[in-house]
Design a protein around this nucleic acid. Structure first.
Lengths: 244, 244
DNA sequence: ACTCAACCAGGTACGGCGTACGCAATGGGG
DNA sequence: CCCCATTGCGTACGCCGTACCTGGTTGAGT
């Protein structure tokens, strides 16, 4: 029948209202603590109890500032995602350079905050800084003869690549951090299985990879650049003719 | 000083050993139950207690088959990821067609199992079916004049795009499922904030998007194809000259 | 044929988690 | 000045992953 509980929009609820005692904390302090803890110990270290302790509050007091853990995550993402684009960013008019720079800054930000990549990929509700980024991205590709829908498709493709790349880039490092192993131990753990696979003879390419490709794979920066430039090139090749 | 607990490699531990009573369950049954539950109720419905109940076992009995929840996830991913490539897949020799088909099947599989995309992006340990996919992918791009490292870079770029795209594609649907809202309620919830943003006048492109781009954005299939083809085109343009 | 180490099933318990609920204290608007 | 919206937060509930332990089962070695 009726609604049971209408979830409120975090970004519309004012931080504080007129009447009542002075709040002792703030969303900003909560967000800062959450980002700090997640940077140092990973997203799984984020709990309402832990955050409350971190800012010197009672656990349930947090619920005066956010409606639940999801809101905390939302605040974390929005605050950090702002770094994708510097405050004073200007749009040069060269869409490939502008969008490429945004993509590279996005990657750097996600590498600095390893918990961000999966969240950034999975959330898409509107938030202040995400909208600011979207606005800037649209301006970068405005004037190429594309409709708004096509601009969104273009931007979406670039960010799909960036998010996907950074996630796989971080996967190994995060696995190591979670298990507390170092790289040597981890490969030693995988080795017997890989050996068995290679010995089976069913996977000749993987065998080649294990021997021939032994020199550390391509540099990770190069790999990111390779894909990013391929995406931008592929997009450029199908742009409508410009009458400039 | 010494090691405290060496995590064992799931894929090297034999499912059953010689001595002792007949096992009542199996990894396969556990995996099947896990996939079934996650498909129907989402990854957050997966718990050791729930899975045990699902196959009629005591909770702690599961630990005879896997070393913990992580192993269950690993089994789920490996079992489902097999669908990226049909058993009888043949490599045509047209690398764009082959890799494109693999990418499209990967997307279809992730859409059928909405819990898969984030896991597929974040795991990269070796597992039987993942190695089978890697082997096939390498064979698809063999003979293009690339070294193994370059092949891996190429394949990585394509899958980065696919994973990133599908994750953002699923984000909204998953948010709706988690909250139990339907699309109308969800947009109604976001509306006031979007209205405020548009009214502020700071985001003209977003305002244009909200009015002009009202017609449902581009079809999602088209958007996926657009990006996939741009990536493949961009790659092709920089391939070494073929002497065919 | 017998033994017993190796294996199985699973109960209990511990320390975490998110958060619903209720209560006492506070302080600005009327 | 006083009302009551608002704050801080203690308690409690129902989940979670899994360490540890007991007690039953079985096949390989003698």
């Amino acid at each position: 029948m009726g609604r049971w509980k209408v979830p409120e929009n975090l970004w519309m609820r004012p931080e504080r209202s007129a009447r009542g005692p002075q709040p002792s904390f703030s969303r900003a302090a909560l967000t800062e603590a959450a980002v700090r803890v997640a940077d140092a110990e990973g997203l799984e270290a984020i709990s309402m109890r832990r955050l409350a302790a971190e800012i010197g509050a009672g656990t349930m007091s947090l619920y005066r500032y956010v409606s639940g853990k999801d809101d905390v995550i939302e605040l974390m993402v929005d605050s950090v995602v702002a770094q994708y684009l510097p405050e004073d960013a200007v749009i040069s008019g060269d869409w490939k350079a502008d969008l490429g720079a945004l993509a590279r800054r996005a990657r750097r930000t996600m590498l600095r905050h390893p918990w961000l990549a999966p969240l950034a990929a999975n959330r898409q509700g509107a938030s202040p800084n995400r909208l600011r980024l979207l606005e800037a991205s649209l301006r970068m590709v405005d004037g190429l003869g594309l409709g708004v829908d096509e601009m969104l498709t273009l931007i979406g493709a670039v960010f799909a690549y960036v998010n996907g790349f950074v996630q796989s880039e971080l996967a190994e490092a995060e696995a190591l951090r979670r298990t507390g192993l170092d790289l040597k131990e981890w490969t030693a753990l995988q080795a017997p299985f890989m050996m068995a696979v290679i010995a089976s003879g069913d996977h000749p390419m993987i065998a080649r990879m294990a021997t021939e490709g032994g020199r550390a794979y391509a540099d990770i920066e190069e790999r990111f650049e390779y894909g990013l430039e391929r995406v931008l090139d592929g997009i450029e090749a199908r742009l409508p003719e410009s009458d400039g």
